[in-house]
């Protein structure tokens, strides 16, 4: 059984979830509470990865991350290394791939908060930032948890984007879904079955977790 691939998958999903939760919160806030010209364009752009084939996202990520692309070039001049075929590269890919799944539930949770609560916070002297941290976030924990679990589950299922950006380097970019694909390619159904089976308790446990979080936030 390819434990290394499972480990890379879980590590990638965890890192993606943590980073994306932090990045998505202010974006969701902007989309839920502010009005500015071009907002609907920005919103559609944030949700675009959901509507594009993963290979299309992968293709453009290769373009920008390659040593000639602007991100890849900047990264190479900073560190001397490449982004493609590295864990960092697939982390960036995974974040972009899952961003709609983080922003959408958070925006819904933020929008549900009664505006009068925010006005009360302003009257009580809280800045918009402090209101976000002290009122909006604590009252949207279930939405944030839902976003985190969705991102986690979506990340462990990523395949096409990661294969294009990361290839299949064991311990670095070879995630479980790629390991399953390769095992099937080589007719090794036993190995593929073992990894596939291990997904079921992981995914199931996370769904139980989100139910628990939802219950806790309601009491």
């Amino acid at each position: 059984m390819d434990y290394l691939a499972l480990y890379v998958t879980l590590k990638l999903a965890l890192v993606t979830t943590v980073i994306l939760t932090v990045i998505a919160a202010p974006i969701a806030y902007l989309l839920a509470y502010t009005r500015f010209p071009g907002k609907s364009l920005l919103e559609a752009l944030v949700y675009l990865p959901m509507a594009l084939p993963p290979t299309v996202i992968g293709f453009y990520l290769i373009i920008v991350m390659s040593p000639k692309g602007f991100i890849g070039h900047a990264w190479e001049s900073l560190t001397g290394g490449s982004l493609l075929f590295t864990f960092l590269g697939i982390t960036i890919a995974s974040i972009i791939y899952s961003i709609p799944f983080a922003v959408q539930p958070m925006k819904a949770a933020f929008s549900k908060i009664d505006r009068r609560l925010l006005e009360n916070a302003y009257v009580l002297g809280l800045s918009r930032r402090a209101t976000f941290l002290r009122v909006i976030i604590p009252n949207s924990l279930s939405g944030i948890a839902a976003a985190a679990v969705l991102v986690f589950l979506h990340s462990i299922g990523a395949f096409g984007v990661l294969l294009m950006v990361g290839g299949s380097i064991p311990g670095e970019t070879k995630v479980a879904s790629i390991a399953i694909y390769e095992a099937v390619e080589t007719m090794n159904y036993h190995a593929a079955g073992m990894i596939a089976l291990s997904f079921i308790p992981i995914s199931y446990a996370f769904l139980l977790l989100i139910n628990k979080l939802n219950e806790d936030s309601q009491t």
Binding site: R116, N120, P138, N139
Partner: peptide
């Protein structure tokens, strides 16, 4: 306010 002054999480 008439209602909704209090923060539900506190």
């Amino acid at each position: 306010f008439q209602d909704y002054n209090l923060f539900p999480h506190l």
